[in-house]
Design a binder for these strands. Structure first.
Length: 287
DNA sequence: ATACCGACCTGTCAGC
DNA sequence: TGCTGACAGGTCGGTA
């Protein structure tokens, strides 16, 4: 499902609804693949913590956690050797959702985590295909916390962006999907950015001219910012923390428009497969 | 370093 | 109506 704009929308929505709340109790599905940190350990570490805030890093949602106070003022997790700061890391995979719901709302099928919060509401992680992942990240002393694998597309400078692709002997489309270079761009926004920058997806990353990379840098940032402003793209089932769909799919110029006329020149949009992913482009506008 | 493939999963939709 | 196959926003690991 989700790329940077969708993850950002979810993270912001969840943050507004859960920031400052205490995690009173936790239920987990114990499906092993979902839990990068073993579920029993995660359960133990989450219960009683307070959620300081929720934000996006790449395609990951990061919950900064604090020790939660018990009624008698003791701190349940401050035993020796267990006092580092923790983060709860959520990756939505293809179909993952984070929903903040009233407890009366029936729990959807494929729910893998339920956090009962001090507001009385529940934070639910629902993921039909189970490509999503949950983990606890322990913040090293004086560390910055979870950083993600690559650089942030919204804040990377042109110089760093250009440097990222220097000497890379792979197609620019595949380079954009490589999360250890830039993190957050997925299949939709790779195609849409390349269209805006008028670059063919098969062009070799290391052979792009500086002017082309500069166009791509601008295109990626503008596409992502516009998509965030519209709440992301809802192609089939993506929804935000309140269960509301996004609208950026209405702005797609090439993604899922195979055979339809290019909105700039009228040429039929072409679809090819690259790295096992559908890739859409205009053979006239993109060079 | 890169390319390509299958694997991991369920749901949906087109075609027969 | 029901079955089959293709495909879907993502990543990982193996083998060239």
């Amino acid at each position: 499902m989700p790329e940077l704009p969708e993850v950002e929308t979810v993270a912001n929505g969840v943050n507004e609804r859960v920031r400052g709340l205490r995690i009173e109790s936790v239920w987990l599905s114990f499906k092993p693949q979902t839990f990068k940190t073993p579920a029993a350990e995660m359960l133990e570490l989450l219960e009683g913590r307070r959620i300081e805030r929720v934000r996006r890093v790449g395609k990951h949602i990061v919950f900064d956690l604090e020790d939660g106070d018990l009624e008698d003022g003791r701190r349940p997790h401050s035993e020796p050797g267990n006092d580092g700061k923790l983060q709860w890391i959520v990756h939505l995979g293809m179909t993952g959702r984070l929903l903040v719901s009233e407890p009366e709302v029936p729990v959807p099928t494929h729910t893998h985590a339920v956090l009962r919060l001090s507001s009385g509401r529940e934070l639910r992680f629902v993921d039909a295909r189970r490509f999503g992942r949950l983990a606890i990240h322990r913040v090293a002393d004086e560390g910055e916390g979870f950083q993600g694998p690559g650089q942030e597309p919204l804040s990377i400078s042109v110089q760093d962006f250009v440097r990222l692709f220097r000497g890379r002997r792979l197609a620019i489309k595949l380079a954009l999907l490589n999360q250890s270079l830039l993190h957050g761009v997925g299949n939709i926004y790779a195609d849409e950015s390349l269209f805006r920058a008028e670059i063919r997806p098969r062009r070799m990353a290391g052979r792009l001219r500086r002017a082309e990379l500069e166009r791509l840098h601008v295109s990626i940032q503008s596409v992502l910012r516009e998509a965030i402003a519209l709440g992301g793209s809802s192609v089939s089932d993506y929804v935000d923390a309140a269960g509301v769909a996004g609208f950026f799919q209405l702005e797609h110029k090439v993604y899922m428009r195979t055979g339809q006329p290019c909105l700039v020149c009228g040429t039929a949009i072409r679809k090819v497969v690259m790295g096992g992913r559908s890739t859409h482009y205009c053979p006239q506008c993109q060079h």
